[in-house]
Design a protein around this nucleic acid. Structure first.
Lengths: 114, 114
DNA sequence: TCGTGATATCGAAATGTTCCGATCTATTGG
DNA sequence: CCAATAGATCGGAACATTTCGATATCACGA
């Protein structure tokens, strides 16, 4: 029954996807960062490039969260691997912003896999 | 400004709530159990009490997941603390079932706190 | 080209999670 | 009352995450 196998396989990868998202969000600081990125202008100081478009640079996130530079960099990498944020490199800065289309799809992912 | 303080406090506890949910689901076995409980009759053998009403007993979950009795008991306690499942004790059995009204509210929690 | 600043990666110590067996409590049937 | 069964809790060993400082990479400006 190839159809059944396909279904099972798809369910499995959706489940893995949800698992990765949950793991990424299962940390108070990372969850907080996601919240700050919802309204960057309210939570971060102005920067070289426009934050509404490109996002917020790692340095600002680091300072706001009160964590080390290496931790900040790793945290953003975790969120990016779970596809909760996207990044743009401009010169020496890496800007991170929410992946809103992905985030908008989370309720559906929850519905399917939970 | 009492209204602002209230808002901030509520946002904080919603965030904690979402954090607890994510932590509870950030484990492949627990996530799988939640899936099985969506359709108990399909995944578990018949038992003393009707599973569509009261849920599934720990023993069955333990066997299905291939984990020890203590781990199964702890896992269900984690899911219950996150309010993802409810339990009913009947005689010597503790039956667990999904808290569907709570689960239905997760997209809203996600929208508010993420 | 050289120093400075931003970010990424490495390696390790501290902390948290996973998961088990052993033990304890409660219920049932004899 | 006793033995058997289900479940909860305890204590600890294995494993994973957290978090840092040190170091490497890359871009910029003097």
């Amino acid at each position: 029954m190839p159809i059944l196998r396909y279904t099972v396989l798809m369910a499995g990868s959706h489940l893995d996807e949800l698992l990765d998202v949950c793991k990424a969000l299962a940390n108070p600081t990372r969850l907080q960062i996601m919240g700050w990125l919802r309204d960057p202008a309210e939570y971060f100081a102005p920067q070289a490039d426009p934050m509404e478009e490109v996002g917020v640079c790692v340095k600002q996130i680091q300072e706001k969260a009160g964590i080390s530079q290496s931790t900040a960099s790793q945290f953003m990498a975790v969120l990016q691997r779970a596809r909760l944020v996207e990044s743009t490199r401009i010169g020496q800065w890496t800007y991170y912003r929410r992946d809103d289309s992905r985030i908008a799809g989370l309720p559906e992912l929850l519905k399917e896999s939970l």
